[in-house]
């Protein structure tokens, strides 16, 4: 074996070793790291937050609501990492009219309280941020939007977020959901473009926007709200992509859809399909409560990961 080949083999071994060592890191921290990376990158390069008071309010209300409701619900305060992730997601996605701060308060309360109210057999059905954004866009479209910032339409930023996102998705065990959705989106968007006689590039372009990056790395893959079993997860991801295609087809044909459906088709596809799939999943197979994580709380990524991996 040549020296170069030996060196290459050694590098592969060290990468594999690093990957194994990373498995000891709690998945919650990896997801929290990724959302923090997105936040820092978006703010430092593109001033995306639009005012640190927004971040403070969204994070503060998410954490406070989680602490309060979990104490009422369980008698103790659960791990707050899930609330942290929701708070940052809301900060990045919520773009209010004027300098209004109330959408961050209301969005945070909606996100966290939905986990405690919209439940079936002890499990919540909607990804918290997905529910909050969808509700805000439906109820207050004159005051709230989601598309005001775009990461500068910058290639390098996309590369960084996608790279970290894919690695962490693989580590957390949800890469198959991400890839299934992305491939389905690409295929169905191309199909829709062909049917409509439109160029394909604009149809697949949304994938590089911040809304979709948050969607594919934090919403559709939320382990707590996905169904159990890899095949079912893949099937649901495809159905979500199909639902999105239908919404987009309606928008293409100027159907009188609520504005939010046109502005954020992926969010509504998940908001419609996700809970139904989860409900069917729970109805057929009662959830085994995780025993390995006494501190598990609704929406916790690690707890959810345990649930999602519970042998069927």
């Amino acid at each position: 074996m040549s020296e170069a080949a030996q060196r290459m083999g050694g590098e592969r071994a060290s990468v594999a070793s690093l990957w194994r060592r990373s498995s000891r890191i709690d998945a919650r921290y990896l997801i929290a790291f990724l959302i923090t990376l997105v936040l820092v990158l978006a703010q430092l390069r593109f001033h995306m937050v639009g005012g640190y008071e927004r971040l403070v309010i969204a994070l503060g209300v998410c954490v406070a609501t989680e602490a309060l409701l979990s104490w009422f619900d369980r008698g103790h305060v659960v791990n707050l990492l899930s609330a942290y992730i929701s708070g940052i997601s809301l900060t990045l996605l919520t773009k209010p009219q004027g300098g209004a701060l109330w959408p961050f308060v209301v969005g945070a309360v909606l996100a966290i309280s939905s986990k405690y109210v919209l439940r079936y057999r002890g499990q919540h059905l909607w990804n918290p941020t997905n529910f909050a954004i969808s509700a805000l866009l439906l109820l207050a479209p004159d005051r709230v939007s989601v598309l005001s910032h775009q990461f500068g339409n910058d290639f390098l930023t996309n590369v960084v977020i996608w790279s970290f996102g894919l690695i962490i998705a693989a580590r957390v065990g949800v890469l198959h959901i991400t890839l299934t959705y992305v491939l389905s989106f690409l295929a169905l968007s191309s199909l829709r473009a062909l049917v409509l006689g439109e160029p394909i590039a604009p149809e697949i372009a949304p994938l590089t926007g911040p809304m979709y990056q948050l969607f594919i790395f934090f919403m559709i893959t939320d382990p707590r709200t996905v169904v159990r079993g890899k095949r079912k997860q893949i099937a649901v991801a495809i159905v979500i992509a199909v639902m999105e295609m239908l919404i987009r087809f309606g928008a293409d044909r100027s159907w009188p859809l609520p504005t939010g459906f046109n502005a954020a088709p992926a969010f509504y596809a998940l908001a419609i399909v996700g809970p139904v799939a989860k409900w069917l999943d729970l109805r057929r197979r009662p959830v085994k409560q995780p025993v390995a994580s006494p501190a598990a709380e609704p929406g916790s990524s690690a707890a959810a990961a345990l649930v999602s991996r519970t042998p069927s």
């Binding site: 372009a205 949304p206 926007g209 809304m211 046109n262």
Partner: peptide, 15 residues
């Protein structure tokens, strides 16, 4: 606006 929302997030080289 719906069409605009599709390209708004795209890489700059596209639009």
């Amino acid at each position: 606006w719906y069409a605009m929302s599709k390209i708004a997030g795209a890489n700059g080289r596209l639009f």
